[in-house]
Design a protein around this nucleic acid. Structure first.
Lengths: 207, 207
DNA sequence: CGGACGCTTCGGGTAGCCCCGAAACGTGAC
DNA sequence: GTCACGTTTCGGGGCTACCCGAAGCGTCCG
């Protein structure tokens, strides 16, 4: 849950791992002592995050070789919260939906491995422009065009970078997806289900 | 023990870890199932090695953040074998002696961090030439001049690359060190103790 | 100021990992 | 064929990491 560089309070981590707050607190304390985590206090919340980029790299490389349902203890970890289905990760789409979109684009040859990160093929550019995402604008931005970002709930990659950002913005604009209250969680609208179905096939179920 | 890319039979790994062969065999079996290790059978020996470069990188990065005396179980791991004191790692010097030499050179400002790996200062070059190691020859070689190599017994770095190779060759040439029978283990001769003392201070004890 | 809330600390129960010795297996040596 | 040797498999024992509920501490809110 912390591998997306977010800082999260202990209670949220406990709920996410389906463990008692006291249990999570012990773990966090040890990781803090070991220098793996940093903590920042805001009011009565204590926000934990991975200590440095080196640690992040290690966590990510471990996650890539870990079996799909790893974690020998920690209760079973994967929760059934709406965050697992779809959420924003910074400014792009993550969760089961984000990974699905990425997978479909790759399967159709629209998204391919490029020299630095990912790239779109001609077919991919056409599809994106048709949807209303400006590929040329994304390319012009002073940041990496498209890169893989590790999804903590799916343990697979979804697309980030300028392209991921543009895609998320357009999907919200089209009202194919919308934020759930004020949270990072996202839900697919009726229009979205239709739209996805027409252009990429049936999206995963939210349950 | 496997992080230097060597392949080793189960029994040697058991002795190195000071564990019963049956215990080590269980661990190796699990790591094999998980795809972390590969195995190759030669006669009645089974040689284990890390499965791929990705795994090697992960093992090394974990070792760099692990505390100096980690390993919660596994008996206590660090053996008192002669391999721990001094050995060759490919074509350079490793073990307590190899790490000591590297540390002393760094402490004296002779070995410094360079753009790619390590580099020698003017003082370092002078010292090496005085010893009889040709720095210019090492630089001319079509391989990296000097790099850090993780020492599995010390869990710290020693110097490798063309410079590490030249240094080992010269130390053997000067008969400051010599191989123990046919093994990778190395011992310091009487002349070596004298020589090290004059130029770098008292070397670590072999016991 | 009292109560709610987030978090941590403490004490104790349990599951499962790590370990070993004994025995089985397979290969090479005599 | 028999023995030696390296390795694996099996059955069990001890330890400790993980986990929880209860209690304590600090912060915010009414």
């Amino acid at each position: 849950m912390l591998s997306d560089r977010t800082a999260r309070p202990a209670g949220e981590l406990a709920r996410g791992a389906r463990l008692a707050p006291s249990t999570i607190s012990t773990h966090l304390g040890r990781l803090l002592d070991a220098g793996v985590l940093d903590v920042e206090q805001h009011g009565r919340h204590r926000y934990y995050r991975l200590a440095d980029p080196g640690i992040i790299r290690i966590v990510e490389s471990l996650a890539t070789i870990a079996p799909p349902k790893p974690i020998r203890s920690l209760g079973g970890a994967s929760t059934a919260t709406s965050l697992n289905f779809a959420r924003t990760c910074y400014d792009h789409l993550a969760g089961r939906l984000g990974v699905w979109v990425t997978d479909e684009l790759v399967a159709r040859g629209m998204l391919v491995d490029g020299t630095t990160g990912l790239d779109v093929s001609d077919a991919g550019a056409a599809w994106l422009e048709d949807l209303g995402v400006s590929v040329s604008e994304a390319r012009a931005q002073p940041r990496i065009f498209a890169r893989r970002c590790l999804d903590w709930s799916e343990r697979r990659h979804h697309v980030a970078g300028a392209l991921g950002s543009g895609l998320l913005a357009r999907l919200l604009d089209l009202a194919w997806i919308e934020h759930v209250d004020g949270s990072r969680a996202v839900r697919v609208t009726a229009a979205g289900r239709e739209g996805f179905k027409r252009s990429l096939g049936t999206p995963p179920a939210s349950s």
